[in-house]
Design a protein around this nucleic acid. Structure first.
Length: 441
DNA sequence: TCTGGGGTCCTAGGGCGA
DNA sequence: TCTGTCGCCCTAGGACCC
């Protein structure tokens, strides 16, 4: 028998060390983006709903009904248009203002129900319960579901287990067998854990992507349980320490820690364009806007960067056109979060990599080597302009007051009409007064 | 015509100084 | 002075997540 949580619990009881049991919950919003759209359009309940990526490119969220129609994740929208029409699929452009706001409502409720929370993504959170020998997880999970759906309309699945990877497994079971489980599942014994791992296909395990799954299947590893039966050495050799940590976590020994909220290590703003650009000026304007956006994100988390990367790509799907893809890292001699400085250095890099004669489809700016803005080191040849700090404060404040991105640098936009394709955008029901739902009697 | 965006972590391999 | 080795640092690339 492995050193599962049950063994430890037994020891705890024998030796009288109470109150050291740790349990994780993974709470996951069901079909989150699609659910957000449905909350304000109840006539779409039980109807297939999909949400598209930026530029209405591909499917990034599906309701259960849409999944049942065989629409895969990442499906290019234009290839599935016929199927959408035939089955009356409700199609939405992504509305991040709405999803972000709904997410923080859900997370606030969860935070009230747990001593510690790690917001893992826009629709998922891990909750950590320490010293919880006498907690009734079934009741807790039920209460969680009730409160979240009652306050926000979003339904969630809940998985409880002694490690994060197992909580993921438990959540998967809760979601897959909603009718039987009531939308929650608790792994609290070695027997339940083994049963769950034997059921779990290897490619569905958290941390096992397509490549690893293929390799594992080749070696006869078909379930999460098979994975745990391999030796530590073999796992480490083939899947590095990441694989080994996962294995231990699946065995019930917590190896994947609870992450505290911390500042981002890289910040990126990248976009595909709604059409291909060939002119220097068009792409240049985008690069400046991306740099400005990165600068705003840096200031929002009170950090500076010491380097940035600029990249451009042509459209890889258009094989008949000449392809070009290049990136460059630009070191900045002093830490900065000034929109002006960052766009200046981004343009330096862009000038270096831009080549005429190509059809550009995508570009981006990523800021690197991020440091806190209160720890700016004075460099010997400091040529940053200290007046920028004040100027950026004013710019942020004004953008906050009069609406996002109204104040721009002169090098942005240039009268051009860049716009993301968002033909099926729903209203920002929860964050814009002029877009709230109006009920007529 | 039309195929997303934003992250993290790890490893291998090269340069370099002790 | 030359050569080998070790460890550190850096970068590119590859894997993963949602």
């Amino acid at each position: 028998m492995k050193h599962g949580y049950f063994c430890r619990k037994l020891m705890i009881n024998l030796y009288g060390f109470r109150g050291s049991l740790k349990m994780y919950a993974l709470v996951d919003c069901n079909n989150f983006y699609a659910s957000c759209e449905r909350i304000f359009r109840p006539e779409l309940n039980d109807k297939p709903v999909v949400v598209l990526s930026n530029n209405d490119g591909c499917v990034i969220a599906r309701s259960n009904e849409a999944k049942a129609l065989g629409i895969p994740m990442g499906a290019p929208a234009f290839k599935y248009q016929k199927l959408f029409d035939e089955h009356g699929v409700a199609v939405f452009s992504s509305n991040y203002a709405l999803y972000g706001d709904m997410s923080s409502r859900v997370m606030n409720i969860l935070a009230e129900m747990a001593p510690e929370i790690e917001i893992y993504s826009i629709d998922e959170a891990f909750l950590l319960y320490k010293n919880c020998e006498y907690l009734d997880f079934q009741t807790l999970a039920k209460e969680m579901r009730k409160r979240v759906v009652g306050s926000t309309g979003v339904s969630v699945s809940v998985g409880f287990a002694p490690t994060k990877a197992l909580a993921k497994v438990a959540n998967k079971i809760a979601k897959k067998f909603t009718k039987r489980t009531g939308g929650f599942y608790v792994i609290d014994s070695d027997e339940k854990r083994d049963k769950a791992l034997k059921w779990m296909p290897i490619e569905d395990v958290w941390g096992i992507g397509g490549r690893y799954a293929k390799k594992l299947r080749y070696h006869g590893v078909n379930t999460a349980y098979d994975f745990t039966q391999k030796s530590d050495n073999w796992v480490k050799k083939n899947f590095s320490v990441v694989g080994l940590r996962l294995k231990r976590d699946l065995e019930g020994v917590s190896n994947i820690g609870f992450e505290k909220v911390q500042n981002k290590k890289n910040i990126a703003t990248t976009r595909s364009f709604e059409k291909m650009y060939t002119e220097y000026g068009d792409v240049k304007e985008r690069i400046v806007t991306f740099a400005v956006s990165c600068a705003e994100k840096l200031r929002a988390q009170k950090t500076c960067c010491n380097a940035l990367m600029v990249f451009v790509h042509t459209n890889g799907h258009r094989k008949e056109l000449a392809q070009y893809s290049q990136n460059i890292v630009v070191k900045i001699p002093f830490p900065t979060n000034s929109s002006i400085e960052l766009s200046k250095y981004a343009l330096k890099g862009f000038d270096y990599i831009f080549k005429k004669g190509y059809h550009y489809k995508k570009a981006g700016v990523i800021v690197l080597d991020i440091t806190p803005d209160n720890a700016r080191q004075i460099t010997l040849f400091e040529d940053s302009d200290p007046r920028h700090i004040q100027l950026m404060k004013v710019m942020d404040k004004m953008n906050q007051l009069i609406g996002h991105h109204k104040i721009k640098l002169a090098s942005q936009d240039l009268g051009r009409t860049w716009k993301m394709r968002q033909e099926r955008l729903s209203p920002r029901y929860t964050t814009r007064l002029d877009e709230v739902i109006i009920i007529n009697n």
